[in-house]
Each structure stands twice: as structure tokens, then as C-alpha cells.
Design a protein around this nucleic acid. Structure first.
Length: 555
RNA sequence: UGGGAGAUCGUCUAACGGUAGGACAGCAGAUUCUGACUCUGCUUAUCGGGGUUCGAAUCCCUGUCUCCCAGCCA
């Protein structure tokens, strides 16, 4: 079995298997509504549903819950398929649609009418609301509740035939207007919607509601364990009721806690708002918590999966720290990303005793602790180094470059700072150094140590690149915690994207969209789809841990 | 104030009447040609009050707090 800690859902399945409930069969499903792009919360659901199926030798159905044509689009269907594949969800090319069951659902609805358990109601949406009662008061029966079977059947067929305008009639289940569970107060099964469906076109003008469609779809597909989030807990009795009235195969609905992440907006509706108001550059903006955004940002499927696996599954309402996600992304990137050197905020470094015009190609490791996978980087008299790797007056504990101090240039030589050039404003414009020719490759034969190694690129060979430095999209742990009268957009981080012109080592010219690197000592980066050979573009995926930066912040 | 659900380190999660463990975060140190990685150590938790029991996070009673439900959304 798995080395992962168990969870209550796995325990339930184990118990079912032991009692022989489904003959040991385990069949789950992942049922997104194609009304937006998948986000990291869905990644958790995908991991659970496909993971459980795989673990128990069963299957998991990718099924589109496409019962509301007014909100659903083919673009979303396509993106969801791509994202599930990318995450490694094995749906074996089998794709299901609730809309494929519209015919069956219609027949079953007539069965309930014939059994006197459903009726056509002429109440307006407003009247339905008024007669539903409240949390503490029972509702009132609809005046149409006791229509005869024949009349109901006739009306329902005519609803389907398009004889009535939107909102004028519904088919309702006849249950109990006084039930303390609001879902039992004669729930709507069908509404009239003269809208074009992305798959069925104009074939239908009545569409099933979620409660009426979902359980029956599960049943048709032989789903054994229908795993959903906590807010559907109240719907389970209704889910069971429909299946029971119909006398069809009964899957079991199990609810778990949805993923909440600090600094992250997980509402599809609000994500849509960000896209529509152009507050971000689309669903796949690297700052978006969508799977496609994270992919573009450079997150790996493995990192996301490990994150989801380590979340655990429970029924507790909680909020996971964003740092946990970053940990798993870094962990995967650390072992998979090639290393390279790039300078984001350049400062010129001149090695006064290095021969003018000379170029030495230095061996550099592409991966840590691996001397056999090398690339060559050109070393010359003038280099770019990171601005923050030099301090004229070093703070306590600083052991990078400062006047009189010696450091190692990664894969290069030891250099000692001898002075600085300044402009008329007193700003440092260049650093002067001398190098130790005997320290070629990065080690001194006399065994002397330096406390710091810094990265660099040859000024003559460096390629310009656009680097997009992404930060959190929101400034607050809870983006919804907005000031009075404002919405979550008030918490948007104005510095969530910073573009810098960087210098990158020449070997990076060969990189193509989607390639991931660690720019040593800085962060992990991913080549953006906007990248061209003449104008490379890199997205910052996640920063390296920075204990020096942390101690700096404290003082 | 109806119904449903849930409360364990700062955060997430384990325990299934028998030593409250892990991960992330944090702190301290070791190591290091990345102030990265890795390694070591440390801090920190059973919502409150009663019971039952040799023994309770776990069972019972009671209180408190949090979340969800009044779409012809899912």
C-alpha cells in the first residue's frame, strides 16, 4: 500500500471493499463544470480522484458537468482536458458529458411524474423564493403541486417542445416544503432555457439542475465513490433520494474539504472577473492560481501533485499556507531544473589585470554534484555582476564583494575588489578588481578560502533578455478581506509583476518555451511562450530560499 | 434562534481506549564553488467544563466557537 498517511475516504473505500459492497470495484470521477479554467483547488480534487482510482486498480472518469449552457464554453472544455492531461490524470481518452445523458434524464423525469413524485410548477422565480420559507420557517406548497399526472406529462412535453418562455415553468420534485433541509423543499429539476448548448446546440430548451443531473450521471457511469466538496453535504440526502426513487445503481457521495490557500483567490467567478476586467493578462497569466497559469509560470506537474498529496484529506475547514506550495515546487525544480547564470540588475565589474580581448571558456556544471554534464561559459575582462553582490560599506555579516574583499566568481576565478568608479552623483558605476590567475576554475592552489561565490556573465557575450519577476497577486492572506465598500480587487498587489532587462549567459539562447532553469543564487525561471530567439523572455517561477535576505529584513 | 458539518503545534495533517507523530513555517548550528540543496538539534498543540476507565485526542454529558444551506448556479 501507499506510504502516505491514510485518510477517511481511503478508509471508507477499504471498508467497502472488505464488505464486498461493489465486489472490490472502485470507480471515481472528476466532474468540472466547463465555465472557467481549472485552478489549484481542482488539482487537489484531480489528485484525490485519479489517485484513489489508480491505487485501487479502478478508473476515474473525466466528466463535464455541462448542464448550464449560459455559462459554459468549448474553450473551457479544451483547457480542462489539457490541464488534466498535464497533471497526469489518466482518463484513458474516455471523456464523459452530463449532456450525453439529457435523453435518459428526461425519461427518468417522466417516470417520477408518473409516480406522482414530480410536477410542473408555474410559479415565477420570485414566487418560488417567496414560498420556500426561511431557515427557521417552513415553506408553502405550490398551488400547482397537485396537478394530475396526465397534465404534468403533457406540460412537461410541451416545456421540452419549446412552447413556454424562459422562467415561466419548472419541473419540481414533490418532496416536503417543510423539510429542515432546504434542498428537500420541492427542488427544481428542470428549468426552461432557450440557450444554445456547446454540445447539444439547440436540441434542448429545458436543462436539468445540478442535483437532478449529478447523481444520475454518477449512477449511469457506475461510479462507486462520488467525491465532492463540503458544501454539497446538504445535498447528499437529495442525491440519495433521486437514486432511490428511480431504483437505479446507487453511488456513494463523500465530501471533503476544498483547498484554501493564503494570498490566493479560488473563486472561479472572481477569477473570471480578473480576466474580464483585464486585471491580469488572461486565464493563463502566470500570477493566476489556474493550472494553466501555474504551468506558464514554471510550476511542474510533479510539484503540484506532491503538494496535493501532502495536503491530506479531511473535513476540516482550513487554509493552507502558500509557502507549502512553494516548498513542493522548489523541491521538484531543485532536482530537475538546469542551472545557468543570469544577472538581473547589472553592475559592471572590470578585472584590471586580466588581458584585454582575451576569452576563456570555463566549464560549468549544469546540475549540482554532477561533473559530467557541463557547458562552457565565456570569461572576459569585463563582466556583469548583480548589483546587490557589491556593497561599498558592507553591513555586518556581508561577505560578498566590498573594497578589499575577495570572492569567487562561480566557475571562474577569485577576484579581489580594488576600487570603484562613480559618477558625478556619487553612484557606483563600475567595480574594479584584480584576479588570481592561479584560481582558474574556482579554486586557489594555496588552499585559501573565500566566504562567497557570486554569479556573473561576460559583458561581451551576454544576451539581453526580458525577465518577468512575479510576486503574489494579492497583498493579503485573505484577498476577500477588503476595506469597507470595496471588493477583493482592492487587495491586488501593485508589484505582482516587475519586468527587468537582464543579461543572460549565451548558452541560454537555445532554450525554448516551457524550459525551466535555476538562475543560480536567484530563483527558478521558465521560458515564456512570448519568448523569441531574438528576444528571450523568462518568467520567475519561485525564488530560492534566501537566509541572508531574511536576516537583512529583520535588521 | 431550523438543518448539516467541523474543532489536535503558527499552518496542514496523523492517532481508531495504551509513549500526541509527521510535513510546512520558525529558531540555532554543521556542511557547501549557489547565503541554494543537504544534514543536525530546538521551540510549539488535543476548544472549555464535567464524567466513564487502571488508562481518554479517542467513549458519554454539557457548553463554546467556526463553516455551509433560503439560485430556475454548480
Amino acid at each position: 500500500m501507499s506510504d502516505r498517511p491514510s485518510n477517511f475516504i481511503r478508509d471508507m473505500i477499504l471498508a467497502d471493499n472488505e464488505s464486498g459492497k461493489h465486489g472490490g470495484r472502485v470507480h471515481t470521477r472528476f466532474p468540472p463544470e466547463p465555465n472557467g479554467y481549472l485552478h489549484v483547488g481542482h488539482a487537489k480534487s484531480i489528485t484525490i480522484n485519479f489517485g484513489l482510482a489508480a491505487e485501487f486498480g479502478g478508473m476515474c472518469n473525466l466528466r463535464f458537468d455541462d448542464t448550464n449552457p449560459t455559462k459554459e464554453e468549448t474553450e473551457y472544455v479544451d483547457s480542462i482536458i489539457e490541464d488534466v492531461k498535464w497533471l497526469g490524470g489518466d482518463f484513458g481518452g474516455r471523456i464523459f458529458y452530463a449532456s450525453d445523458y439529457f435523453g435518459q434524464l428526461f425519461e427518468w423525469a417522466k417516470q417520477l411524474i408518473r409516480d406522482g413524485k414530480a410536477y410542473v410548477c408555474d410559479l415565477t422565480p420570485e414566487q418560488v423564493r417567496q414560498t420556500r420559507g426561511t431557515l427557521t420557517e417552513p415553506g408553502q406548497n405550490s398551488p400547482y403541486r397537485d396537478r394530475g399526472v396526465a397534465e404534468n406529462l403533457d406540460l412537461f412535453e410541451r416545456m421540452k417542445a419549446g412552447e413556454f418562455p424562459d422562467g415561466s415553468k419548472t419541473l419540481r420534485a414533490k418532496i416536503d416544503m417543510a423539510s429542515p433541509n432546504l434542498n428537500f423543499r420541492d427542488p427544481v429539476m428542470y428549468r426552461i432555457l432557450h440557450a444554445e448548448h456547446h454540445r447539444t446546440g439547440n436540441q434542448w430548451c429545458i436543462y436539468p439542475m445540478y442535483d437532478w443531473a449529478h447523481g444520475q450521471s454518477d449512477s449511469i457511469e457506475g461510479i462507486t465513490h462520488s467525491i465532492c466538496t463540503l458544501e454539497f453535504e446538504d445535498h447528499r440526502p437529495l442525491y440519495d433520494w433521486y437514486v432511490q426513487q428511480l431504483g437505479i445503481f446507487a453511488p456513494r457521495q463523500i465530501e471533503f474539504d476544498r483547498l484554501n490557500l493564503t494570498y490566493t483567490m479560488m473563486s472561479k467567478r472572481k477569477l473570471l472577473q480578473l480576466v474580464q476586467q483585464k486585471l491580469v493578462a488572461g486565464w493563463d497569466d502566470p500570477r493566476m492560481p489556474t493550472i494553466s497559469g501555474m504551468r506558464r509560470r514554471g510550476y511542474t506537474p510533479e510539484g503540484l501533485r506532491n503538494f496535493a498529496l501532502n495536503l491530506g484529506v479531511s473535513k476540516t475547514n482550513g487554509i493552507t499556507e502558500f509557502e507549502k506550495l512553494e516548498f513542493h515546487i522548489r523541491e521538484d525544480l531543485n532536482r530537475t531544473a538546469r542551472r545557468a547564470m543570469a544577472v538581473l540588475r547589472p553592475l559592471k565589474l572590470i578585472i584590471d589585470n586580466y588581458p584585454e580581448g582575451e576569452v576563456e571558456w570555463m566549464d560549468a556544471c549544469n546540475y549540482p554534484d554532477n561533473d559530467s554534464d557541463l557547458r562552457q561559459v565565456p570569461f572576459t575582462r569585463e563582466l556583469w555582476i548583480e548589483r546587490e553582490d557589491f556593497e561599498e560599506v558592507p553591513p555586518k555579516g556581508y561577505f560578498r564583494l566590498y573594497p578589499g574583499n575577495e570572492v569567487r566568481l562561480r566557475w571562474g576565478f577569485f577576484v579581489k575588489c580594488t576600487g570603484v568608479d562613480k559618477d558625478e552623483l556619487g553612484q557606483v558605476t563600475a567595480i574594479h578588481c584584480t584576479y588570481d590567475p592561479l584560481s582558474r576554475g574556482g579554486n586557489s592552489p594555496d588552499g585559501r578560502k573565500v566566504k562567497s561565490t557570486i554569479h556573473w556573465v561576460s559583458a561581451n557575450h551576454a544576451l539581453p533578455a526580458e525577465v518577468r519577476l512575479y510576486d503574489k497577486l494579492f497583498t493579503r492572506e485573505d484577498p476577500n478581506d477588503a476595506p469597507e465598500g470595496q471588493d477583493f480587487t482592492a487587495n491586488l498587489n501593485p508589484n505582482s509583476l516587475q519586468v527587468v532587462q537582464a543579461w543572460i549567459e549565451p548558452a541560454l539562447a537555445a532554450a525554448s518555451a516551457g524550459d525551466r532553469f535555476q538562475f543560480e543564487r536567484l530563483a527558478y525561471f521558465c521560458v515564456d511562450k512570448d519568448s523569441t530567439p531574438s528576444r528571450p523572455v523568462f518568467n520567475r517561477t519561485v525564488e530560492l530560499r534566501d537566509s541572508w535576505g531574511k536576516t537583512q529584513k529583520k535588521t
